[in-house]
Simulated scan of single mutants.
Amino acid sequence: MIEPRFVRAVNNIRPYGAHRYDLFGPKIGRRLTLFGRLALDLRVRLESDPRVVTYCERPLCIPDAKPSRVVDFWFRTHDDERLCVVLRTAEWTSAEQGGSLFPAFQSWSRASSFQLQMIHPKELDDPQVLRENRVMMLCYLAGTHAITIEKLMSGVLTVCKNGTTLSELERQFATADPMLVRSAVFRLLLRGEVRCAALALEPLGPNTELDVPSCRSPLVHYDSIEAPFRRILPISVSGRRRTTARFLMRARPAEAPDPRDDAVLGCHTPLREISRETGGGFNDVYRIFERCITQHEDGRIFGCRALIPYQHTRS
């Protein structure tokens, strides 16, 4: 695998008046800080586009720009590398009047084999249903990032070849936690290996139909680079909770209630050992564990579902 050309933001200075968002990026496997809604929108689109292999926020500054200006994102696909600049009001006004933006930087980009992509804020619109579906899928990916589900994904992909629904998958893989099944489905969707024809038309739910794109019916890519999504919803899980979740997937104390969950909680590691390993307080770890073993309305424990941000486990 080719190493990313950029791996960290060149600076973390918050522009005046811009909101700050601390997020976790499943595709890049690290936390990142963004400033402003448009940067957040573009990041969600990069995470959701199966063509994007990796990306980096604020990879470099545009020299001689006044006021100072950073490139919003760099990203790499299988075919090329691009630099994305979301235009500010004064910039797109100048461009509409025929002005040339950052001519020296454009020349440098071409010489460095970058495609410089300037995005007008009006291009950053998306159907509301599609926006909310993408955010929900990223919530699941952030919550299960530290959990290995490749074997489950392989099984899900096999079933999807004949067409299925989300509820049918959960019934077929009843021994696995429903959150892990959904995470496997959503990872495959965002990779482009599974298709949901109604992704932009209706909210994801139990009756969502899934299949595998064929050669005659190629996967439709919603152009996530051209039209990022603008709604602000929580899509991250704290690093400590993710770390604790990884241990909870393979450890349970002697008083854990249900032996049927041994497939998920594999061995008998005490909670205090998990507390030492994760760096979290014992009470914090116990609360997370207590959330996981709370009974869901479907009769099973919440399991990994309790780790979704803002998931309520009490009726």
Rank of each mutant, 00 (worst) to 15 (best):
D223H: 11
S224F: 11
E193F: 02
E57M: 00
V135D: 02
C304A: 10
D223W: 06
Q106F: 05
F302H: 13
L138K: 09
A245W: 03
R230M: 08
R43V: 08
D177E: 11
P218K: 10
T144I: 10
C139H: 03
L169P: 10
R131V: 05
Q311I: 00
I147Q: 08
D41Q: 07
H268Y: 01
P103R: 12
A111R: 15
T144E: 07
P213T: 07
Y16G: 01
T33W: 05
L141H: 05
E96V: 05
D125V: 10
S154H: 11
D262V: 15
R88Y: 06
P26N: 15
T175G: 03
S183I: 01
N11G: 11
R252W: 00
R5F: 12
G17E: 13
L307I: 15
L138V: 15
F75R: 08
T208R: 08
V10H: 05
P59N: 09
G299A: 07
D79A: 06
K161L: 07
V7A: 03
F24D: 03
E47Y: 06
R216D: 14
A95T: 14
Q97I: 00
S154W: 00
A184T: 00
T313L: 05
R252I: 00
G266Q: 12
E168G: 09
R5M: 13
S167Q: 10
S113Y: 11
G25V: 07
E96S: 13
C160M: 07
E81S: 08
E202P: 01
F282Q: 02
F302N: 11
R240M: 10
V70E: 14
P26T: 15
R242F: 00
A111Y: 08
E150C: 11
V159Q: 09
G99K: 08
Y222T: 03
T77M: 12
F114L: 09
D64T: 00
R191P: 01
C139L: 02
L210C: 08
N162E: 11
E226D: 12
T208Y: 13
I119A: 07
R110W: 00
R300V: 00
A198K: 14
S224M: 05
E255G: 04
T77V: 07
L271A: 06
Y21K: 04
V86N: 01
F247N: 06
T164P: 01
D41H: 06
L23Y: 02
F73R: 02
Q106A: 15
L38N: 14
L233T: 10
L307K: 03
F247Q: 14
F75C: 14
A90T: 10
R45W: 13
A39Q: 15
L46R: 04
L169T: 04
V159A: 05
L83V: 05
S48D: 09
R31W: 05
Y55G: 08
G280K: 07
L83R: 07
I301W: 14
F102T: 12
